[in-house]
Nucleic acid binder design. Structure first.
Lengths: 120, 120
DNA sequence: ATCATAGTACGAGGGTTATCGTACGAGCCG
DNA sequence: CGGCTCGTACGATAACCCTCGTACTATGAT
């Protein structure tokens, strides 16, 4: 049986409630190039992605660290599914708290990418 | 004679060119509560304000530090006028680089203020 | 010239961050 | 079971950041 909602989905991780999300924390999370890149890919894809889907130029431990920062700041929602940990943007929560902000940020990041390319 | 454009206006400070402004640096600058507060006041007022106009709960040296971060990230433009140092938001530059971002950011900050009040 | 005001420079303290490496745990597959 | 992959935990390191105090410069007013 492969019920996604069963306990087989794995232990769950601490997330801030919507009301606990702070703008400063979100901006800090997004001020790191690696994390901004993760969020951009997440937004481009639209669905949930595993941590290992991202091919980042850092080690596994560092990757874990960045995803934790994103989760604890309220930017992403993380769920275990089997051995994989799936990551999804908390679009609804963020749009509710800060209407238009996420889209502006993604647009700004996209523009800068077009302007400067990959060079960090 | 009180010509504002004369050399009497004082030495000038290094600012990043518009094209050099990086989103990550802007987000980092705005992720500090003190600096976010400064930017909010600056936006609310609309005109240039001196450093000493702000009544921040930190020392003068720390205030100097925060304004430098804001200037070096391209968020504000600083100009000496007599003994005062005037600060203005770089609205045009930011709007050109990242259309809508500053307004979204300010709106988000305003919303959070209404929601949570002053308590940092 | 004297003094007050606005801000700077420098150095230090204490905290946080990004990064790594190695060792470990938890699900899956043969 | 045994091994593979995914991700975690922990410790270490080096860099960075916010804050302060003290000493200093520069401009304007008396």
């Amino acid at each position: 049986m492969t019920d996604v909602t069963s306990a087989a989905a794995g232990r769950d991780l601490p997330h801030p409630d919507r009301e606990e999300i702070r703008l400063e924390a979100v901006l800090h999370a997004l001020s790191d190039p690696m994390r901004l890149r993760i969020v951009r890919e997440l937004a481009a894809d639209g669905s949930e992605l595993s941590c290992s889907h991202f091919d980042l130029p850092v080690t596994k431990s560092t990757t874990t660290h960045h995803f934790r920062v994103l989760r604890e700041s309220g930017v992403v929602r993380q769920v275990y599914r089997g051995t994989a940990k799936m990551n999804g943007l908390r679009r609804e929560d963020l749009d509710d708290l800060f209407p238009g902000l996420l889209d502006s940020l993604l647009a700004a990041a996209g523009r800068q990418y077009l302007r400067l390319g990959d060079r960090a």
